[in-house]
Deep mutational scan, measured.
Amino acid sequence: VTLFVALYDYEARTEDDLSFHKGEKFQILNSSEGDWWEARSLTTGETGYIPSNYVAPV
């Protein structure tokens, strides 16, 4: 499993987005949709879409 870490804070803009804080780690569930990836936060357990340019591989 490839994990990603948040480089910046992000505040959700829609109900499908996932808010997160810098340093939070994610498991990517689906990265085939372009710039927005479906991810699960390893901190909160919540699932939603995150901007791929806000995260980097651990």
Rank of each mutant, 00 (worst) to 15 (best):
T14H: 15
E46K: 15
Y49L: 13
V58W: 15
T43I: 10
D35C: 12
S19E: 04
L42F: 07
D17W: 11
A12H: 06
S31H: 11
D35G: 13
F20N: 00
V58D: 10
P57E: 09
Y10N: 03
H21L: 11
S32G: 10
Y8F: 11
T2G: 11
A56N: 06
I28G: 01
G23Y: 06
V55H: 01
D9Y: 04
L18Q: 03
E24I: 02
W36Y: 11
D16H: 15
L42D: 04
E11Q: 12
R40Y: 12
D16G: 15
Y8Q: 08
T14M: 11
W37D: 01
V55N: 01
Y49E: 03
Y49P: 02
V58K: 04
P51A: 04
A6T: 03
N30R: 09
W36P: 06
L18R: 02
H21I: 12
V58I: 13
T47C: 08
S32R: 10
N53A: 14
N53P: 06
D16Y: 15
A12L: 02
V5Q: 08
T43H: 11
V1W: 13
T2E: 11
A6W: 01
A12M: 04
S32K: 11
T47L: 08
T47F: 07
G48R: 02
Q27W: 15
S31Q: 14
D9C: 08
P51H: 08
P57Y: 06
T44F: 03
K22T: 08
Y10D: 00
T47D: 04
Y10L: 03
Q27R: 09
S31A: 14
S19K: 04
L3G: 04
Y49I: 09
G48H: 02
F20A: 02
T2Y: 12
S52C: 10
V55S: 01
N53R: 13
L18K: 02
L3Q: 08
T44A: 03
S31E: 09
K22A: 11
G34W: 13
D16W: 15
W37I: 06
E38R: 12
S32H: 11
L3V: 14
T2V: 12
E11L: 11
L18F: 08
T14R: 15
D9W: 04
G48W: 02
T44Y: 03
N30V: 07
A56P: 01
S31K: 13
G23D: 06
I28T: 02
F20I: 06
H21F: 14
D16R: 15
D35F: 15
V58C: 10
A39K: 00
E24N: 06
T14E: 09
K22F: 06
F26S: 00
V55R: 00
L3P: 05
Q27T: 11
W37G: 01
P57H: 06
Y54P: 01
I28C: 04
F26C: 01
K25Q: 12
D16T: 15
W37M: 06
S31C: 12
Y10G: 02
G34R: 13
Q27I: 15
W37N: 01
L7C: 07
L18G: 01
K22C: 07
Y8A: 09
F4V: 10
A56T: 11
L7N: 03
R40H: 07
A12W: 02
D9N: 09
V1G: 14
K25C: 11
L42E: 07
W36S: 06
G48L: 02
I50W: 00
G34D: 12
E33M: 14
Y54F: 11
N53Q: 11
D17K: 14
A39E: 00
K25N: 07
D9M: 04
W36A: 06
P57L: 09
E11V: 14
N53E: 10
S41M: 06
N30F: 08
G23T: 03
N30P: 04
A12D: 02
N30L: 06
A56K: 11
D17N: 10
R13A: 12
V1M: 14
N30E: 07
V5P: 00
G45N: 09
V55E: 00
Y10A: 02
L29A: 05
Y8P: 00
A56D: 05
W37C: 03
H21S: 14
V1D: 12
L29P: 05
T44R: 04
I28K: 04
E15F: 11
G45S: 06
D16P: 04
A39G: 05
T14G: 15
G34K: 15
E38C: 15
N53T: 12
A56L: 08
G23N: 06
G34M: 13
E38H: 14
T43M: 10
Y10P: 00
S19N: 06
V58L: 13
E15T: 13
I28F: 04
L3N: 06
Y49Q: 09
L7V: 07
F20Q: 00
V58H: 09
S19T: 10
V58F: 13
F4P: 00
A12T: 04
S41D: 03
G45R: 05
F20K: 00
P51I: 03
G23P: 00
K25E: 08
I28M: 04
T44E: 02
T14Q: 10
D9V: 03
L3M: 10
E11T: 13
A56Y: 09
F26V: 03
I50C: 01
G23Q: 03
D17S: 15
D9F: 04
D35Y: 15
E46A: 14
F4T: 04
V5R: 05
F4E: 01
S19F: 04
L29V: 08
T2A: 11
E24R: 01
S19A: 07
F20R: 00
S19D: 04
E11Y: 10
N53G: 11
V5M: 09
L42W: 08
G45L: 08
Y49T: 08
V1E: 13
D17I: 12
S31M: 15
N53L: 10
E46I: 11
T2N: 12
G48T: 01
T44P: 00
Y8I: 07
L3W: 11
T44D: 03
D9R: 05
T44L: 03
E33W: 11
D17E: 15
E46H: 13
H21A: 10
R13T: 13
F20L: 05
G34T: 14
S52G: 07
K25V: 15
P51C: 07
V5C: 06
E11C: 12
R40T: 12
A6K: 00
L29H: 05
L3D: 05
L29Q: 05
L7D: 02
F26M: 06
W36C: 07
I28N: 01
H21T: 14
S19P: 06
A6N: 00
E46Y: 11
A6I: 01
F4H: 06
E15S: 13
E33V: 11
A12F: 02
E15G: 14
Q27Y: 15
G34L: 12
E33K: 15
E46D: 09
D17C: 10
G48S: 01
G23W: 06
L3C: 09
A12S: 12
T43P: 02
L18I: 11
H21D: 06
T2K: 11
G45A: 05
R40C: 07
V58Y: 14
P51E: 02
Q27S: 08
G48V: 02
F4Y: 15
L3T: 09
D35Q: 12
T47E: 09
K25I: 15
R13Q: 15
I28Q: 02
Q27M: 14
Y10C: 04
G48E: 00
V58P: 04
A6S: 05
Y54E: 01
T14K: 14
A12V: 02
E33T: 12
T43Q: 09
T44I: 02
E24T: 08
P57K: 09
L18A: 02
Y49R: 14
L18D: 00
V55W: 01
D17P: 02
D35S: 11
V55G: 01
P51S: 05
K22E: 07
D9K: 05
K22G: 04
E15K: 13
K25G: 04
A56V: 13
T2D: 11
F26T: 00
E11D: 11
N30S: 12
D16F: 15
Y8N: 06
D17R: 15
V5A: 05
L7H: 03
E24V: 04
Y54N: 03
V55C: 05
V58N: 06
E15I: 11
L7F: 03
L42V: 09
Y10V: 02
R40K: 12
L42I: 10
